[in-house]
Design a protein around this nucleic acid. Structure first.
Lengths: 111, 111
DNA sequence: CCGCATTACCTTGCAATGCAAGGTATCGTG
DNA sequence: CACGATACCTTGCATTGCAAGGTAATGCGG
């Protein structure tokens, strides 16, 4: 999948996944990596940004196999942002589809 | 419209517009600026990239009001690329919509 | 004829973000 | 006790959109 296309969408995707239940970065990468490529070098800075915006909050959970996991939970603000991003996403897709669709036959295009 | 979302899509949009007829950068900005914001500082480097990839070729046309216009015409390679990009776009949208849709209830998620 | 708006071209520097590469630490198993 | 898997993280680079600024041609009003 083209790298540039993902820019600005991964936030939305991560928030959407977290809306289905708390998770931690390492797991998020594995989940998202199935459909769209995404690597650790992407997710960790991204989670920091989400936390800096107060869209998620964290808590540690000890693991039976490996170091403690830093779980992320959506905040109320995060859920609101998720809704806003969903709307932006739909508007964006509509806009692009409009450009991609065949000429809209505007009357004044016959100069 | 969010800046980051546009990354990787503007190429596709410009090629799609050119597929409907030759145009020049200044006009492309005005056309695209209706739906999605786009500025001159974006379009000129972009057109250079498209030309460097040989997806478009140029020819000058003198204008009755202002300096000569540098028209861009889609090449065969450009048209092929446009088709490829359209497919990538659809795949990309599908992938994101999949993530945004409610939990798909995979059996093995009950560990 | 001169300045100004409009058209039309272009470049520089910055900001945002995805990613490869590399680093650290913990746990269970052989 | 070495190793793989799990899980965390950072640094530096590449790409790309954009604001800001610069150049030049044309026609019009004063």
């Amino acid at each position: 999948m083209k790298t540039q296309l993902k820019k600005g969408v991964l936030d939305l995707c991560v928030l959407a996944v977290l809306d289905r239940g708390d998770s931690y970065a390492y797991e998020l990468v594995n989940q998202l990596a199935q459909g769209m490529q995404i690597s650790e070098g992407t997710i960790y800075p991204l989670m920091r940004r989400l936390q800096a915006e107060a869209w998620v909050e964290t808590y540690l959970v000890e693991s039976s196999a490996g170091p403690s996991r830093k779980y992320y939970r959506l905040t109320a603000a995060g859920r609101a942002e998720l809704d806003a991003m969903r709307r932006e996403w739909r508007d964006f897709v509509s806009e692009v589809e409009l450009v991609l669709s065949p000429a809209p036959q505007t009357e004044e295009a016959l100069s």
